[in-house]
Computed example of a mutant assay.
Amino acid sequence: MTAQSAEAANSLALTDEADALAHPDEVSRAHYTLRRAIMRGDLRPGDPLSQVELARKLGVSRGPLREALRILQREGFVHQESQHRARVAMFSNEDLDELYAMRISLEALAISIAVPRMREEHLQRLDQLLDEMDDTARTGDVERWECPHEQFHRALVHPSGPRIERELSLLSDHATRYRLAFVSWNPLEWQAETSAQHRGIAEAVKAGDASAASKALAVHLGRTALVVLSMAAPTYEPVRIRRALAVACGE
């Protein structure tokens, strides 16, 4: 095991009590912990994944760990060629372009389906999450801010249907991985802009305007995508993202 991969394995945080209750079996616990470590960059693109070392660090058996790695491979977080050790999936400009294009297209569709199905408790939940984002942004704690931010985006599309929700959850997690890796920002620095965008989306939802909500969400995601790309690959032309934005905004 290389020094780099050993360091990555040692950075894996053990799940807290709440996580342990939510992921009681070994497969679920290993999958959750490794997925979180990959998304946060504790396990970096290209890092080799030693089953022996990871099983020891996570306190699980080799069988459940192998199953967790297979799930991560299906989800696109881990890559393994025949007869080679599994590695954390690499980043690429093409993948980032495709990923955000898919998310813009599907999330804009999902919110347009969800808005007419929103009930009062859904709208109250959006306001609660907006307030939590503002509160945590003031602390400058990126990881704390990510929790209500992720929940806000999922709440926007919750009534759209479980299959759509599952697909969007996976796309969102991949997008978060890119964003955390390439965008060196603090929620406090972007608070005014991102808060205004999120509240604009929520206002359209509360007004029952599915079309306006869909466009506002697409524009918000598109801006984020272009910021990430400007830092990850300044000279890359995001054809897919721009086309997805045009379609979502009816241009």
Rank of each mutant, 00 (worst) to 15 (best):
T2V: 10
A3L: 11
A3C: 05
A3Y: 05
A9N: 13
N10G: 08
L12S: 00
L14S: 04
T15V: 04
E17R: 10
A20T: 04
A22Y: 07
S28N: 07
R29I: 00
Y32S: 06
R35D: 00
R35A: 10
R36N: 03
R44P: 02
P45G: 13
G46F: 05
D47C: 11
P48I: 11
L49R: 03
R56N: 04
L58V: 01
G59T: 03
G59S: 13
S61G: 15
S61N: 08
R66H: 14
A68H: 15
R70N: 13
L72E: 06
L72M: 15
R74F: 14
E75C: 02
E75N: 14
G76S: 15
H79T: 15
H79Q: 15
E81I: 00
Q83W: 11
A86W: 13
V88A: 04
M90V: 12
F91W: 07
E98L: 13
E98M: 11
L99R: 12
Y100F: 15
R103Q: 15
S105V: 02
A110Y: 03
A110I: 01
A110M: 01
M118N: 08
E120K: 07
Q124H: 07
Q124F: 00
R125S: 12
R125A: 05
L126G: 00
L126Q: 04
Q128T: 11
L130N: 01
M133V: 11
D135A: 12
R144L: 10
P148K: 05
H149Y: 10
F152D: 02
L156P: 03
V157A: 03
S160G: 04
P162G: 04
R163F: 00
R163Y: 09
I164M: 00
E165V: 02
R166D: 05
L171C: 08
L171H: 06
S172D: 13
D173R: 15
H174N: 12
H174W: 14
T176W: 15
Y178G: 03
S184P: 03
W185P: 05
A192E: 08
H198I: 10
G200D: 05
G200K: 01
G200M: 07
I201A: 01
E203I: 08
D209Q: 12
D209W: 02
S211L: 09
A218K: 06
R223N: 08
R223E: 10
V227M: 14
V227F: 14
L229G: 01
L229A: 02
M231A: 10
A232L: 03
P234S: 02
Y236F: 15
E237P: 13
P238R: 05
I241A: 01
I241W: 09
I241D: 08
R242G: 06
R243L: 09
A244D: 05
A244V: 09
